[in-house]
Write a protein that binds this DNA or RNA. Structure first.
Lengths: 380, 380
DNA sequence: TTAATAATGATGGAATCCTGAATAATCATG
DNA sequence: CATGATTATTCAGGATTCCATCATTATTAA
């Protein structure tokens, strides 16, 4: 949302005012003209003018009147979140999750397809197709209604939406994810690393909503990180920001070993459950795992000095067993220990981030000076 | 310079246009109205109106006519960089350097006062006073003309301009730098860590001018880092960003030991000179030093994936002996190795960064909507 | 039915921008 | 030294947009 403020002629001023009206309407509920005028700082008359424009162009719609108040009932206007649809897809090792939402990011349908790390790329892509088709069908939406699609995948992603390198899924390296998905939906397809998108989701709808600088740790079968800096997702020059796990000293690769080394007792398959039940060896293994993770986390924290560290990923359900040790380790290593919290987005975080990526694309078009022509301009 | 674009009434539009005119004039040479109109995108008539306003309020001045062209000679207008002065001060271990510049950042006078790491805080503050007084006197400027002052110091600086912790100068911990300097100059005093300001200087006038994401390494008797992210100085939530040296594994503290362990031969006191002259032990010591530095640098680079790493500080004069090893080490450790370059700002980098800090403050006031009242408003 | 309340609609004034034509200043040339 | 070419400046007219104000309209409460 940071633009160079550049002035211009009167037409541009109207555009700017139309944008502020749109932003005020966006996400919130329907507003009357008087309310809109108050919030935007414009006069009532001008607000009316702007809204008439937006109404004609299809960006806003009239909501029902609210009855039961004294005085003449006011017309109420709302953002036409139903004018288009966006799609967010998480391609993971164990599941493919597709979320279909309206332009407010309100999820209309979610479709989950189970996959397996051992699957080949064709099988996995077929699962992606099924998830997308299911999400569209479930919401009763055709591909033409989809304005933008965000896709999350493991591994490094290049500028064209191709997977440059995936350590967790070797078969996946080199797959042209954007190309494949583009053939299934209309509109632009944006592909990004899953840890980064999970971080984005936290700063959108998660526990990091009010923080400007955030380190997000994806703790699960793989370990990864995503960075929010100054409220924005930080990608890095080569899209490789946050890949601290590659540093051998950091030991994110060997961290998992501690967990794998634990042998389940009879009837218990989950190390975290075992630890809660008092299994000493499980507790110790988890502690060693967290200590390894914490080295890399310290490097991220010392580099950025964030306000908040969020732990997400599969293991965040067992935050009670992780956060204490993590806090202690960070405290030991860092100059200023940030707040440490667990994600509350369950296993939908990554897909929500993908959704947000698609929404960002729509918003950018909304804010592009000279645009705001009409919603249908997306389909051109 | 990044503001939310918010629209408003016609008066606000004029303000925005006045700002774009100011930005166009800023830093560049004098321009005619026709040139200004072309660059700002405004019509000639409106540009004239805006410039008349700015002229009346004292922000711009008429420059001399340029003769020798065909046609009626055009009036030319320039930013009144001479309307005020700013001061940048670097308080280091071995010197205090004060730069006095105009509002374009053109340095008018620089004053250097030698100090010693063993000095007490009173002695050092006295040296600061002398440097400031010398810079003012040298440029023939009174304290009242100084609109803003930036100060660089070693150690962690808190929000009020007090040194929270200085490892290099233990006596310096707790000194209220902003308070002291405020009593010597008029206008606001901004204090910041020296590594951070050196980074700022590189992205302003150094080799990092065209990079958005930069890691700056201060390599000298102390080691430090400063980060430029998305074109802006990154401070962190507690102003402790870049303090990766605190991580014991990183070894920035022991790095110096390698250099100190080298014993000078007869007639040679400088390890870098010795290395150039073929002293094997000196070469090896430097290599070990750089390898230690590189561990922390790798952590910074892996975290941020910057476009560029800049090496500054006292040792950057000997970049020929450092950069090769540093590149090789980064290459070994990082996923994508950024470009590595040496600073070209000699030992004025930190002071220039302090100057930029002061100028940023002036610019912010210039860009604050509702301001742009008159230059003299700074003195109120 | 009337009073109170609050939204809508219409009018006029002011600020700002743009376009285009008339005027002014300088250089080159006969 | 006058004239034309060239470019700047100045001025006038028209258009857009915003704001303030007032009359009108729709609804609830008494």
């Amino acid at each position: 949302m940071t633009e160079e403020l550049s002035g211009g002629d009167l037409h541009r001023l109207r555009q700017l005012n139309a944008l502020t009206v749109m932003r005020t309407l966006r996400g919130g509920s329907a507003l009357t003209l008087t309310e809109l005028a108050q919030r935007t700082g414009l006069s009532r008359a001008s607000t009316e003018d702007v809204v008439r424009d937006l109404l004609e162009r299809g960006w806003v719609a009239e909501a029902e009147l609210k009855v039961g108040t004294v005085g003449r009932p006011a017309r109420r206007y709302r953002f036409r979140a139903d004018a288009g649809r966006v799609l967010g897809v998480d391609i993971g090792g164990h599941k493919v999750l597709a979320l279909l939402s309206d332009l407010d990011g309100e999820v209309l349908h979610s479709e989950r397809v189970g996959v397996d790390p051992s699957m080949g790329r064709m099988e996995r892509l077929a699962a992606v197709d099924r998830a997308i088709a299911g999400a569209l069908a479930g919401a009763g939406v055709s591909t033409a209604d989809v304005w933008a699609t965000g896709v999350a995948t493991t591994g490094l992603v290049d500028g064209t939406g191709r997977v440059m390198l995936s350590e967790a899924l070797p078969e996946w390296t080199g797959v042209d994810v954007a190309g494949h998905v583009s053939r299934r939906v209309s509109g632009p397809v944006l592909v990004e690393n899953d840890s980064k998108l999970a971080a984005l989701a936290e700063s959108w709808r998660g526990v990091a909503r009010y923080a400007k600088d955030v380190v997000f740790l994806l703790a699960g079968l793989r370990t990864g990180a995503g960075l929010i800096i100054d409220g924005k997702l930080h990608r890095g020059f080569g899209n490789a920001a946050g890949e601290i796990g590659a540093l051998p000293q950091v030991g994110w690769i060997r961290a998992q070993e501690h967990l794998k080394a634990w042998t389940p007792g009879p009837g218990v398959t989950n190390i975290f459950q075992a630890a809660r039940d008092g299994d000493r060896k499980a507790v110790a293994a988890i502690r060693r795992y967290v200590k390894d993770i914490a080295v890399g986390a310290s490097a991220l924290v010392l580099t950025l000095d964030p306000e908040l560290v969020v732990v997400g990923g599969g293991f965040s359900r067992s935050a009670d067993l992780i956060l204490g040790t993590l806090r202690a380790e960070l405290d030991r290593r860092c100059i200023r220990t940030p707040e440490v919290r667990a994600s509350a987005l369950a296993d939908e975080g990554v897909a929500l981030g993908a959704l947000r990526l698609a929404l960002d694309h729509v918003d950018a078009a909304l804010n592009r000076p000279g645009e705001l022509a009409a919603p249908s301009s997306f389909l051109a």
